[in-house]
Amino acid sequence: MSELHTPQAGDDHAPDLDVVGLLMRQHGDIRNLFDEVEQSKGDERRDAFHRLVRLLAVHETAEEEVVHPFARRAFEGGEQVVEDRLAEERAAKETLSALDDLDTDDPEFLPKLRALRTDVQEHARAEERYEFTHIRRSTDVTNLATMAKAVKAAEAMAPTRPHPGVESAAANVALGPVAALMDRTKDAVRKAMKNG
């Protein structure tokens, strides 16, 4: 494997003026974290998995707060497209919570993680093909940039790199439970949308 860092959320100098481009790169970040979890062991895997859970939570929260409400109104049939995506998200959340109850070294962990990965990947492509294309088509650059700003505000809530020296789960515990993270993300997103 090459020595390059896997690019992760916010880890580039893109101007992020387009919410769709930004979310597509986040979909890649999520896949990268799945790779990291699958390829690591012990504490490293535990740490990578916690970062994955947090990025998924933040990413989905941002989509639910910013993109889905816009898509519902923006185009004919948007309501149904969003309903389909939300159903996929609910199913993924259930698998995720079952996974969260397991230790990352449990023999059941990897097969369940792979099933989740498949669901998440199908969901992400469905968003890109059936929702995002309509968003780009039905709004202007100002609105795309405002939404991008809100998603960036959410992204800042989920550090995706391991903290140097604290590869244990302790660091993630210190950041609080996922539900609280989602609440904080919602607040951050709403604030950014208001100021946008």
């Binding site: 690019p7 580039d12 597509m24 979909h27 790779d35």
Partner: peptide, 15 residues
């Protein structure tokens, strides 16, 4: 590919 999807081509060509 890295610009658009934040993914590395080695995840496809696998070294």
């Amino acid at each position: 590919y890295e610009m658009i999807e934040h993914r590395k081509a080695e995840s496809i060509v696998d070294n």
